[in-house]
Simulated scan of single mutants.
Amino acid sequence: MADADPVSESLAAARPLSPHLSIYKPLFTMMMSIVHRITGAALYAGALLLALYLLGLALGPSAFGAVSWIVDSLIGRLFVLLFSWALFHHLLGGVRHAIWDRGLYLDSDGRELLAKVSLGGGLALTALLWIASSLFG
Rank of each mutant, 00 (worst) to 15 (best):
D107K: 03
L119I: 14
V117G: 04
L17W: 03
W100M: 05
A47G: 03
L106E: 13
S10P: 02
Y53K: 05
L104I: 11
A63E: 09
W85T: 05
L52D: 08
G122K: 07
S8Y: 12
H89F: 14
R77D: 01
L92N: 05
M31C: 05
T29L: 00
H97P: 01
P16C: 06
A124E: 09
S73A: 04
L135S: 09
A12Q: 14
V7H: 13
H90K: 04
S108I: 03
A13D: 14
I34A: 14
G56P: 08
P16V: 05
V7I: 15
M32G: 02
A12I: 05
L57M: 12
M30E: 08
H20D: 12
H90R: 04
S73N: 05
G137H: 04
I75A: 15
S84I: 11
A12S: 13
V67H: 09
A124H: 12
G60S: 08
L91R: 02
G122F: 07
G65M: 03
L50F: 13
L59I: 01
P16M: 07
S10M: 14
L78S: 11
L125H: 13
D5T: 10
A127L: 15
L52T: 11
A63C: 04
L52S: 06
D101K: 14
G121N: 06
S134Y: 13
S22H: 10
S73W: 03
L57N: 05
S10K: 15
S84N: 00
M32W: 01
R96W: 03
A4K: 15
D5N: 15
P26I: 07
L43V: 03
H89P: 01
L87G: 12
A115P: 01
G60A: 06
D101G: 03
L113Y: 10
L74I: 06
M30Y: 01
G60H: 09
L82R: 00
G94E: 06
F64A: 06
G76M: 07
G60D: 05
A86P: 01
S73R: 09
H36A: 10
I34S: 10
L123H: 05
